[in-house]
């Protein structure tokens, strides 16, 4: 057994959507001003653009998520963290910045399926409608009673992150929300036709 165990690692539930706890994910929090000089330096180092507010940029196995006007979250392979930390620290030597490894602090889930938006709307007050929350956007809000981040990766897939201590809670709440018979057919027409098909069987 590996010494490294992500919270809820391997947990999976199938319902209106699939919910899967992701393996350990490298995560580096960057608190800094997102001014031109920081942008330039970060962009050069990471090979990634700087995300607009409430969004993310991704490239290969790396992504940069906008968390607040002075906070970014870098996602990268777990094993790549020490080297990246070292490079960041060197690059920003003497700059006003807080670079912290938070890879173990958060649990990441992948949610996918045609009922994605409906299931999310059961647990978060954020506007999840297709007009308001488009692929590539990041929104921090609530997941039932805990704080969570939502990164919409496509129309039917999202990555959701919570603090690791409440990973079990989040997984259970999401699984309940995705429970059978809980179709709402509010956000998507496809889901509606799907129901019509099944109800006539």
């Amino acid at each position: 057994m590996s010494d490294v165990m992500a919270p809820m690692a391997g947990a999976r539930s199938e319902g209106l959507i699939s919910i899967e706890a992701l393996p350990p994910q490298g995560q580096i929090s960057l608190r800094c001003e997102v001014s031109d000089d920081y942008r330039a330096k970060l962009g050069e180092l990471l090979g990634l653009g700087i995300p607009e507010p409430l969004s993310a940029v991704e490239e290969g196995d790396r992504a940069l998520l906008w968390m607040a006007h002075d906070e970014l979250l870098l996602l990268l392979p777990y094993d790549a963290v020490p080297e990246m930390l070292a490079r960041l620290n060197t690059t920003f030597e003497g700059w006003f910045i807080a670079i912290t490894d938070v890879s173990d602090a958060r649990a990441q889930f992948r949610l996918s399926g045609p009922h994605l938006r409906d299931v999310l709307s059961k647990v978060t007050p954020a506007d999840i409608s297709p007009d308001a929350f488009t692929p590539g956007m990041v929104r921090r809000s609530r997941l039932a009673q805990v704080a969570a981040g939502y990164w919409l990766r496509s129309a039917s897939e999202a990555q959701v992150f919570v603090f690791r201590s409440v990973a079990d809670y989040a997984f259970q709440v999401l699984s309940l929300a995705a429970g059978p018979g809980g179709e709402v057919h509010h956000h998507t027409r496809e889901a509606i036709s799907e129901q019509d098909a099944s109800s006539h069987v």
């Binding site: 007050p125 506007d127 929104r139 609530r142």
Partner: peptide, 11 residues
Amino acid sequence: PCCGVDAAEIE
């Protein structure tokens, strides 16, 4: 005004 979200009171 910090992130541009219209936040519900429970946030």
